[in-house]
Design a protein around this nucleic acid. Structure first.
Lengths: 177, 177
DNA sequence: TGCACCATGTAATTAGTTACATGATTAC
DNA sequence: GTAATCATGTAACTAATTACATGGTGCA
């Protein structure tokens, strides 16, 4: 579905799609070539996309175009209620079992997580600024900004939590538990 | 690792472990029987846990106890930097491709998401209250509360974002885009 | 000449869910 | 007696990553 969605913007190759996924929805969605190429073949067999080989010198590029059937399928999928996100957070699991190890171990993970979260906030701000500067007319833009906004809010929440958690663990050690 | 961690508290069966995972780390970690039972066998073969059959009437229960090798392995794992959480958020993907469908479709998803987030906040608050009432001495408690606190912060961020997103989409329709 | 990047694909492996099969116990 | 829950496991399937294999282009 992410392939159909991106192809609705412009025709692209599998390679382009991978790069495009990373640039646009990379914050909350990832795909590997091992899934993209077979999926494109399947979508072509189902009549959702059309693939055409382009030859530039000796280099072959197979560019896929979204067909009406694919557009319909994408709309159908968009209307379905989103499935619950697969939840797996190794950091939280390690924090949960924190009493099994030295306090420094968990604090180290929290420090790293704090830095990551701050970087994510900064990166999101930069992306928002760039997008607003260059493509003020793109009809996709408001939706893209919304996804970035959630990313930013969650990253901020994580940063604040990491600071709070560090403070709690510090205080706990003081009182000699 | 989640099995070793929970067994560090008390010996349990595979069935107990599944229930325990749901009650404690369920907000950010899930396992199915299809993984738990084979994993316990593997951990026993590696000497990390010891399994003993208990017979209560005609019902068999295989209770696993954490061994020193398992404890060491758990500590080793805790010291490793946590791997990046697998990110896949279908709601955000649908919001991102929102321009491909009617505004009401996305608003419906956002409304549902808002309700879910509010429920999560309430559920977390209830759990925190319950934990603080019953087990003020448990050495695991502070760590557990920290994981709940992140869950709450993230749920609140999601709720606020959903409201914001609904407002944005509403305004956008007004201005006739 | 060699490296980084463009470009496509397959195979092997691992991870994970779901469905199925079985049977005992407890509470209504 | 019958439904819910306790309890353990396997098999089939699906999803997903990683490694491998191949070869072209552009540039320093």
């Amino acid at each position: 579905m992410v392939l159909l969605g991106l192809l609705s913007h412009e025709p692209m190759s599998g390679y382009d799609l991978k790069a495009s996924i990373e640039q646009t929805v990379g914050q909350f969605w990832r795909e590997s070539y091992g899934q993209i190429y077979p999926a494109l073949k399947a979508l072509e067999a189902q009549g959702c996309v059309r693939g055409e080989d382009q030859l530039q010198g000796g280099r072959r590029r197979r560019v896929y175009t979204l067909l009406e059937a694919g557009r319909a399928r994408l709309r159908g999928w968009l209307a379905e209620p989103p499935e619950s996100t697969s939840v797996r957070n190794e950091l939280l699991l390690k924090v949960f079992f924190g009493r099994m190890t030295a306090p420094d171990v968990i604090r180290g993970h929290l420090q790293a997580s704090l830095q990551q979260a701050r970087q994510a906030v900064g990166h999101t701000d930069a992306t928002v600024a760039m997008l607003q500067a260059e493509g003020a007319d793109d009809p996709q833009l408001p939706y893209w900004l919304l996804t970035l906004d959630l990313g930013r809010r969650v990253a901020e929440a994580r940063a604040e939590w990491a600071q709070h958690a560090l403070a709690v663990l510090h205080a706990q050690e003081e009182t000699g538990s």
